[in-house]
Design a protein around this nucleic acid. Structure first.
Lengths: 183, 183
DNA sequence: TGTATCATGTAAGGTGTTACATGATTCG
DNA sequence: CGAATCATGTAACACCTTACATGATACA
């Protein structure tokens, strides 16, 4: 139930329309919390009725009008309450791990297909790592000790980078193991 | 939608009652796929009507009767089909990362509380790592190149170990960053 | 003329969580 | 006698995903 809070954080960082929020959830915030635009519009409506956010109608030339959302004082206080609550244990769902254990019950051809799929998956993660590193060079070229927001954004990004590096190393281990079995 | 397939893998490894399955989802399988007993019973029923699993009634002395489930040939073939399909991109939901970015909008006391919470969270992950390492020593003391199932289970466990080590290192980074901001 | 982007939604269906429910045995 | 474990479920609700829907502008 942290979608509300992820939206609050994003709106406190910068007010936005539902559409812009949805794009952020495809990019920076999407690194650690995914949401579709349908979810976002629905939750924004609930948050509005709870008084956590307010919208300002913005007329635009040559584009549809938009509602620019920002967090209210009540929203910021709800976020502060949530920050104080314990972190919920995460629901782990790692499909590839299920497939790897399932490979024990596949034939030679099935395992060869899995090797190809792991290679494709590995290439995806290599691309994600490259984009994180590019983002780090772009957004955090030199540490600024006075900027708390940047320091916190940066440490979260470093977590993403560490995760991707770990995944790549593990996928090499997986590929070596699968190839060993094929011999 | 991999719960069905996680159940198939588990039943192929060893037939089990719904209750036993639920316990496995609290332990070994739960490392990469979580499920509650309610979900498991519901899905088992659907899988039975799809002909993927069959149950054998087992009467027990001093305990309630149980239904021992095993995968059918149709179930194993459904698993093989799924193994050939591309891995779906995972839905990332990392609450702690949201909280860390949210800490930019908290006061000193709120950040101090977050430090304490990160320390608690870190201790949890240290315990998980210790249990993985104990499981590795217990179940895979010496590699057996002929045992495909063990090799695949082991590489998945190594993934869990690598993940926990990465998380611990990152949490140290997070704690150092938060403490830096408090000075 | 077709595709991409901006902008906001509804509806249906599937999945997951929480609470409730039952009933026996084992162990302290 | 109470708590934990074994064993299986139902019901209600919350949440998420997918498909559908609309309509404007910008650009090739």
């Amino acid at each position: 139930m942290a979608l509300e809070h992820a939206i609050l954080v994003s709106l406190l960082e910068q007010p936005a329309s539902g559409y812009e929020l949805a794009r952020r959830f495809d990019r920076s915030i999407g690194r650690f919390w995914t949401a579709t635009h349908q979810q976002i519009y629905r939750v924004l409506k609930r948050m509005e009725s709870d008084g956590w956010v307010t919208a300002e109608e913005v007329g635009q030339d040559g584009r549809p009008d938009k509602r620019c959302w920002s967090a209210t004082a009540a929203g910021q206080s709800a976020l502060a309450d949530w920050l104080r609550a314990p972190v919920q244990p995460e629901a782990v769902r790692h499909e590839l791990a299920v497939k790897i254990r399932g490979a024990a019950f596949a034939d030679r051809a099935g395992r060869a297909d899995l090797v190809a799929e792991v290679e494709r998956y590995r290439a995806d993660h290599e691309a994600v790592l490259a984009s994180y590193l590019a983002g780090e060079r772009r957004d955090f070229p030199a540490p600024d000790p006075g900027d708390a927001r940047a320091a916190l954004q940066h440490v979260v990004l470093r977590g993403g980078i560490a995760y991707e590096r770990m995944v790549l190393a593990w996928l090499d281990d997986v590929l070596a193991t699968l190839r060993d079995l094929a011999r």
